[in-house]
């Protein structure tokens, strides 16, 4: 009786974890012709903090902040070690001190993918479940 209870609880926990993971996992995406296939974690961090502004071929990187709640917080915490609020204030400090303009901001995965379709150098992140063949997935390595 106890064994079966443990098994059921374990199964439910595993199921919940899988559902949460599949629903909230993000993937880094760019235009199909963007010049990279993979980036290191540090490179992603430097790009989204405005420190690395060029692809290896010398063309400029255009970052696209996707404020879709399903992935935004997960992305900023996981990749940039910042909460969404810290990330927003980081860029506003840059803006109001005259160092740069704010990155492009979109509200959904659909908007992000639409933007990437028209901008060869743009880079964003979307929910993995919404990934389709119009954009290229970028692998993040350590």
């Amino acid at each position: 009786m106890q064994k079966s209870t443990v098994l059921i609880v374990s199964f439910l926990l595993l199921l919940t974890t899988c559902l949460v993971a599949s629903g909230k996992e993000y993937v880094l995406v760019c235009h199909k012709e963007c010049p990279v296939d993979q980036l290191t974690h540090r490179e992603v961090e430097r790009i989204f903090l405005g420190k690395m502004r060029k692809w290896p071929d010398g063309s400029g990187i255009e970052i696209v902040v996707n404020s879709n709640e399903e992935v935004h917080a997960l992305f900023t915490r996981d990749m940039l070690n910042k909460s969404p609020s810290q990330f927003s204030n980081y860029w506003r400090r840059i803006l109001f001190s005259g160092k740069n303009i704010l990155p492009v901001n979109v509200k959904s995965d659909v908007d992000a993918q639409s933007y990437l379709l028209e901008h060869t150098n743009a880079l964003s992140y979307i929910n993995v479940t919404n990934l389709n063949s119009t954009v290229k997935k970028i692998l993040v390595v350590e």
């Binding site: 400090r93 001190s97 005259g98």
Partner: peptide
Amino acid sequence: KMPIGLYNENRDSDFL
């Protein structure tokens, strides 16, 4: 803006 210390460049933006 003059880069003195960590915060001089943002001294007018107290809300940050």
